[in-house]
């Protein structure tokens, strides 16, 4: 895998177009409850945070699955619904909570990057979610912090 979802929380307006797009892509219905990405509204902090699977290289979910339903497809951890028995062990193993049981199907669901064209990133109106080169995920953040670096001589130096 050479691309990943990169989330810039500061740009998220809480509109949930990502949840709509994700649920529509995977279920054919507009249904945030069945989205693989979730936006959390920390109203009193004035912050919206989209959250989803980061596709760990050594994925807890994949390693604990007793029936081998979760496989590594070019870096993307994909659940094979036909194999999944709905035991939910992966939901316990995932440290981030991004694998979840879906009552409607009796299977677990997680982000599969939509086969290489994530619907959430395409739907995001503010580029809070972008699908970009995995090796430079931190580039914009680095640049923002680099810009803040003060190279002026220190008074007490």
């Amino acid at each position: 895998m050479d691309k990943a979802l990169v989330i810039d929380v500061g740009k998220c307006t809480g509109c949930r177009q990502c949840e709509l797009a994700c649920s529509y892509e995977h279920t054919g219905t507009f249904n945030p409850a069945r989205s693989r990405i979730a936006v959390f509204d920390f109203h009193e902090k004035g912050r919206f945070v989209p959250y989803t699977c980061t596709q760990c290289d050594q994925a807890w979910c994949q390693q604990v699955c007793p029936v081998g339903a979760i496989t590594n497809e070019d870096g993307v951890k994909v659940v094979d619904a036909a194999t999944c028995v709905g035991c939910k062990v992966c939901t316990i193993a995932c440290p981030f909570g991004t694998v979840n049981y879906e009552p409607a199907t009796g299977k677990v669901i997680k982000c599969d990057l939509c086969g290489g064209e994530p619907a959430c990133a395409a739907a995001c109106p503010t580029e809070a979610i972008v699908f970009t080169d995995v090796s430079v995920q931190g580039f914009e953040k680095m640049r923002a912090w680099a810009e803040k670096t003060d190279t002026a001589p220190q008074a007490n130096a």
Partner: peptide
């Protein structure tokens, strides 16, 4: 102003969040 905010599905996001 802390930030702007959108209602459900809104790609305008005119809402004001203040402190």
């Amino acid at each position: 102003l802390v930030r702007n905010a959108g209602c459900f599905g809104c790609t305008i996001a005119c809402g004001r969040i203040s402190q």
